[in-house]
Every structure is written in C-alpha cells, then in structure tokens.
C-alpha cells in the first residue's frame, strides 16, 4: 500500500514534468516565429549609434555614440511641445476609454435584439473609413465655410460667422479626441460585448432571485465581469501613450493647429524619415520603445498594488 502511494506520487510528479516539457515544446515554434519577425530585426537598433546610410554595411558606418539621442533633446522647446501634445492627447483618449464599455453595456441592455445588432454594425462603420476620407468628410461637413454644419448653424442664426474646427487652436485636442472617439467607439465595444456574453448567466439568475433591479444587476454582475478586460486594455493604453497614430494628425493638422497637434509619430516622420535621416529616426524609435516598456512596467506594478494581481 505504502509502495502504491509512493509510486502514485512519483508517477504524478513525472506526469507533471512530462506536461511541462510538452507545453514548452509546443510553444517553441511560436517563439521562433516571434523571434524572427520581431526580435531579429532589432539589430537595426545599431543604426542609431552610427552615421547610417542605406546600402552601407554596419561596420562601414562611422560610429557616433549617443549623438542622435542628444539631437532628440537639443531642440528642447520643440521636443517638449511634442511630448506635451502627445501625452495630453493620449491622456484624454485614456479617459474616454471607458466609453466603449459603457456603450457595450448600453447595447446589451436593449431588448430588441435586432435593433441592437443593427446599432452595433452601424457604429463600427467609422472605424473602416480611412483617415484620408475622414479628412474629406470633416472638411466638407464641418469645417469648410460652405459646410453643412455652418450652413445649418448660420441658417438657424446661432452663429454669425462660420466655425472651423480644424483651425481652432484652443479646442484642438478636444476636437481630435472627439473625432477619434467617433471613429473607434463602436469597434472597440466589440471586445466588451464578447466579454459580456461570456458572463455566466447563472449570476444574473441569482441576482433576479435576490430581487435585484436592472441597475443593480449592471452594477454588481455586468461591470465586475468586464473589469478584468477593462484593466488589461487600460494598462495597454497607458503603455502606448507615445503612440497616437500618424495618419490622424498628419492629415487633420493644419498650419494653425500644428502647435497643439504635432505628436511624436509625426515628429519622427518629419524629422527623421522624410529627410532620410534614419539614424535619427531609429534613435527616436529606441526612445519610444524604452519609455513604453517603462510605462507598462509602472502601470503593471501599480495594478499589482491596487488590485492584488499583476496582469503582465
């Protein structure tokens, strides 16, 4: 009997070992793919430390150390402004990141399922409209002197001279964040919708038994069910604060609003890539990667402290 118990324990142990090995083996091919496509190209980070010219081999380029990193910061007035814009716009977007969750709850509350589906499909459409078209739409419908918005507002006598959201410097951030929310709300809600459908229906039934009304059900069943998803996305958003997307600001920024709308991605393009200064562009890329990973670690650490478990 004693032998049996020992044998059982031993075989269970080696069974676990077996499983562990199997897991790692299965994982290896995917790690290999990721290594090839994401980690191997990182040899290109070396371009930031030399005077890189395409076509030259790395050892043929002159070593310059941290010169290009210094250059990012030398024009400090410009750089500070760019960082300010980037972080401000990202922060506003993060504040608005709760909207897709609320929107998903709103859709799931609608009793007419077909209507809900139509709403969900239609609100996802703006996400598929390219930024080039968004520019055209904003120009023709909102911004031009002859736009629909201006015609309506002037016709109703609400304003005396045309408004132009695209040249409004003071509200530039609000305008861009609003446009971004319009574009991404429906699409981002999809994740939350799928999370809602995965909430155990029994919890709702139990709440009914306890006599909970609709609001209480939302508060105590739905929202907790979405919380883990929300936090993951929140942490990801925080770590991506330096990425605002190039197209939106390159296309919708105008001479009047560059002061507020120049973000890191357009800055890298303008200073580095467009001038074929690849060493500078690479240095900026390294800067962005390092800051993003730091932000992620910090956010993860904060989440561990606040919620008790680290997500990453």
């Amino acid at each position: 009997m004693g032998d049996n118990a020992v044998t059982k324990r031993v075989s269970r142990l080696s069974g676990r070992r077996q499983k562990q090995i199997k897991l790692v083996l299965f994982l290896l091919p995917f790690m290999a793919m990721v290594t090839i496509f994401s980690y191997i190209p990182l040899f290109g980070w070396s371009y930031a430390f030399v005077e890189y010219s395409p076509g030259l081999q790395l050892w043929e380029c002159e070593f310059v150390g941290l010169k290009y990193f210094e250059r990012i910061f030398t024009n400090s007035a410009d750089f500070i402004k760019v960082m300010r814009n980037t972080l401000a716009i990202s922060s506003l977007n993060i504040c608005c990141s709760v909207l897709p969750a609320i929107f998903a709850i709103a859709i799931s509350q609608v009793k007419y399922k077909r209507f809900a589906k139509v709403v969900q499909t239609c609100t996802s459409i703006p996400n598929f409209i390219s930024w080039v078209l968004v520019y055209s739409i904003v120009f023709m419908l909102l911004s031009s002197e002859n736009s629909a918005l201006n015609n309506i507002l002037m016709g109703l006598g609400l304003i005396s001279s045309p408004v132009n959201p695209l040249t409004d410097v003071d509200h530039a951030w609000a305008v861009q964040v609003s446009i971004n929310v319009w574009k991404t709300l429906g699409y981002n809600a999809i994740i939350y919708l799928s999370a809602i459908t995965s909430i155990d229906q029994e919890l709702y039934q139990a709440a009914d038994v306890d006599g909970a009304n609709n609001w209480q059900k939302i508060l105590h069943v739905t929202i907790p069910g979405l919380l883990s998803t929300f936090f993951v996305l929140l942490l990801l958003a925080i770590s991506n604060m330096l990425s605002n997307g190039f197209d939106q600001f390159w296309l919708l920024g105008t001479g009047m609003t560059w002061d507020k709308l120049e973000v890191f991605d357009t800055y890298v393009y303008r200073m580095g890539i467009r001038n074929m200064e690849y060493s500078l562009a690479t240095a900026m890329g390294i800067f962005k990667s390092v800051v993003s990973i730091l932000l992620l670690s910090f956010a993860n650490f904060a989440s561990k402290r606040l919620r008790g478990n680290s997500i990453f």
Binding site: I36, L42, G44, P54, Y278, S289, S292, I293, F312
Partner: peptide, 19 residues
C-alpha cells in the same frame, strides 16, 4: 513577457525589410 515586449520594440522598416 517574451511575447508582450514584441508590441513595443520596432527597429524601423529597413532592418525588417532586410530580415
């Protein structure tokens, strides 16, 4: 984390092209 870090590291298109 090995997988997650890949979202944040990008050396530009030239090294990617060469790879």
């Amino acid at each position: 984390r090995f997988f997650i870090v890949t979202m944040y590291v990008n050396a530009g298109f030239i090294p990617y092209y060469l790879t």
